[in-house]
């Protein structure tokens, strides 16, 4: 053991009500889901942790996946591997693709869905895809000795730079709900490793619904980890209602509008990332056109 550093107390609640009691008593305690992000921080060990660690691994209520006709509900402690195996029949293709690219199988066994969404400063692939799928998360807040529960859209959990807006010390994500009414055209791209090569990484998710030869709904999210988490309502509404195939000149102009928006709102994105983002966006729209022309 390191001198002067006390071993943190580990709280291991078995139920949510036990967790509530512990969380209200030890307000500074660190919540522990899979631990992949926390332990990959340079200053993780040795370090002092006030009020100890609350290990969420023992709470079975957070490890369930349920499905009905309208939505799938995923417990926040379900691992990426478990969701990938379970989700073949119930989840949209884009989410499966996202889970596969999240990390290697060895690490996927450890990454939890809630943990991945609640990283404070870096947005990874899962947040990007869930944001365009209009997923919502149940958040329990612990304040002044009271527990309150709210459903919040995943896209509203983060600011424009991708920082988590929740105070993780006083809140717990328990479930994620994904509606089953998703678009018939979905694309997901990730370029470079978001952890090892943050400065060059681009994560992009897109889904669209087509009615006859018109885009009735288009949603996309472009994510530059630790720099920008960008969803553009303006461009989405410009795309919605377009007749397919979209004219190549229009595709070109919309993709440059995206670049202009990104440059205006986020100053720290590198030129390489911007160009990658633009080309991915443009090629997605061309793929949408190609699919329309084939059908």
């Amino acid at each position: 053991m390191y001198e002067g550093i006390r071993s943190p107390v580990i709280h291991t609640p078995k139920t949510l009500s036990e967790f509530n009691a512990i969380a209200l008593r030890y307000t500074q305690a660190q919540l522990w889901a899979g631990g992949t992000y926390l332990m990959s921080q340079k200053n993780y060990y040795p370090s002092e942790i006030k009020d100890g660690i609350i290990d969420l691994g023992g709470i079975d209520e957070l490890k369930k996946i349920t499905r009905n006709d309208r939505f799938v509900e995923i417990g926040s402690m379900v691992t990426a591997s478990q969701l990938l195996y379970a989700g073949k029949l119930v989840l949209p293709d884009i989410l499966q693709q996202t889970l596969q690219t999240l990390a290697s199988q060895i690490v996927r066994h450890q990454i939890t869905i809630g943990g991945s969404l609640c990283i404070p400063d870096v947005r990874l692939a899962l947040s990007t895809t869930l944001a365009i799928l209009d997923a919502t998360a149940e958040i329990k807040h612990y304040q002044n000795g009271k527990v309150s529960s709210h459903w919040i859209q995943i896209s509203k959990l983060y600011d424009k730079d991708g920082n988590l807006l929740l105070n993780a010390e006083k809140a717990l994500m328990t479930r994620i709900r994904i509606g089953l009414d998703f678009g018939d055209f979905q694309r997901f791209f990730t370029v470079e490793d978001p952890i090892r090569n943050t400065d060059e990484c681009v994560i992009f998710a897109f889904q669209a619904k087509r009615t006859q030869n018109t885009l009735s709904k288009a949603q996309f999210c472009i994510n530059f980890p630790s720099k920008a988490f960008h969803m553009s309502k303006d461009l989405e509404s410009k795309l919605t209602g377009q007749t397919l195939p979209i004219h190549p000149e229009k595709v070109n102009s919309i993709s440059y509008e995206l670049v202009a928006e990104l440059t205006k709102q986020h100053s720290n994105i590198t030129d390489l990332q911007l160009e990658r983002g633009r080309r991915i966006f443009e090629s997605t729209l061309h793929a949408l056109n190609a699919q329309e022309l084939q059908s």
């Binding site: 580990i10 522990w32 631990g35 992949t36 332990m39 990959s40 660690i53 290990d55 691994g57 060895i106 690490v107 066994h109 450890q110």
Partner: peptide, 11 residues
């Protein structure tokens, strides 16, 4: 197989 640097002692 696991990466031992991301497994804490309490687990």
């Amino acid at each position: 197989a696991v990466l031992s640097c991301i497994i804490p002692a309490f687990r």
